[in-house]
């Protein structure tokens, strides 16, 4: 395999991983924007989407409709979490809200374990999506699920871009992220905006959850934990609360991880996550507003 082909293959891997991080990070950032709350339950909303899709496929629903079923289930889960858990503590001190978010995580995970046990379940990806493509005489490989992931990521991000720049609801969501009181003064219905933000963010979590599980080939109740942590790093790199920042951060993190694994000496590879989380600490210490908002303070 020539150097060029190897690099191209790694670029494909980086984009593929980065798009998953970006999808999760965007949702985290949307919720953080309007509530100034790190929604740890976001990873569990991914899990809800992934399990719903698995169950739907299990009863014979084709993959794409099952995927949408998963997205809808996640959106409903996000809606309920906001209504039942977060709304009552909306004006409570930050510590209370943070603990509430952790509590929701534990509850959802344990309900998941009760229903599905904590052992991994096979993700029944249809064979057509596992089919792989070989380019340049087999030097470059990617599967249909890779292509689908990228296509759905791009499609959903374009849709989100349209929503937050062209619709009053989307503009209102950004306005509320920036200045909640000012948003109220122009007459935006803040309750409604927060509900919409949760639904949109959770739908993104659902999409990410299904694609993540499909690529990994397994689902389990704690599956949201790693992507949540990674997306958190991505969101901080980009500037927490900024949607474009989350995107940039997601793809950068994907690229960085592939870089570490593919291009640095093998001895360093096991330290991939350590490097990633060191980067998180470095950002929090020296550039807490991330790349996009250099002067902003951030609080968890």
């Amino acid at each position: 395999m020539s150097g060029f082909e190897y690099i191209l293959q790694q670029v494909i891997n980086a984009v593929s991983l980065g798009s998953l991080y970006a999808l999760v990070a965007v949702g985290l950032s949307i919720v953080f924007g309007v509530l100034k709350l790190t929604n740890f339950a976001h990873g569990d909303v991914m899990m809800v989407g992934a399990f719903t899709t698995v169950l739907l496929i299990g009863v014979g629903v084709p993959f794409i409709p099952a995927l949408f079923g998963g997205i809808i289930a996640s959106a409903i889960a996000g809606f309920l979490i906001e209504r039942i858990a977060y709304r009552p503590v909306r004006n409570a001190p930050d510590v209370t809200r943070l603990l509430t978010s952790l509590a929701v995580t534990y509850i959802l995970e344990n309900v998941g374990i009760l229903i599905f046990t904590s052992s991994p379940h096979n993700f029944p990806l249809p064979d057509s999506l596992n089919e792989s493509w070989q380019l340049m005489g087999g030097a470059i490989t990617f599967t249909n699920i890779n292509i689908l992931t990228l296509a759905l990521t791009l499609l959903s991000l374009v849709g989100l871009g349209w929503f937050i720049t062209k619709t009053t609801l989307g503009l209102g969501m950004r306005a509320a992220s920036e200045d909640m009181s000012a948003a109220q003064l122009v007459g935006l219905d803040v309750n409604r905006l927060i509900v919409v933000a949760f639904i949109v963010a959770s739908a993104f979590a659902g999409l990410a959850g299904v694609l993540w599980a499909a690529q990994a080939g397994v689902v389990q109740p704690q599956m949201g934990f790693t992507p949540l942590l990674k997306a958190f790093v991505a969101a901080i790199i980009g500037g927490f609360g900024s949607i474009s920042g989350a995107l940039v951060g997601g793809f950068m993190l994907g690229a960085l991880e592939i870089l570490i694994v593919a291009f640095l000496p093998d001895a360093i590879t096991p330290y991939r996550d350590a490097i990633v989380f060191s980067l998180l600490i470095a950002f929090l210490l020296f550039r807490p507003g991330g790349l996009m908002q250099p002067n902003r303070e951030i609080k968890l």
Binding site: T168, L171, G172, R174
Partner: peptide, 26 residues
């Protein structure tokens, strides 16, 4: 009743046009 608040409190990351649009959101 509309309110132009102390310190202006504009949406700084939105454009002038978008700020005006949100002014008419009701």
């Amino acid at each position: 009743i509309a309110h132009s608040p102390e310190g202006r409190r504009l949406f700084g990351s939105l454009t002038v046009a978008e700020n005006l649009r949100l002014g008419s959101c009701t």
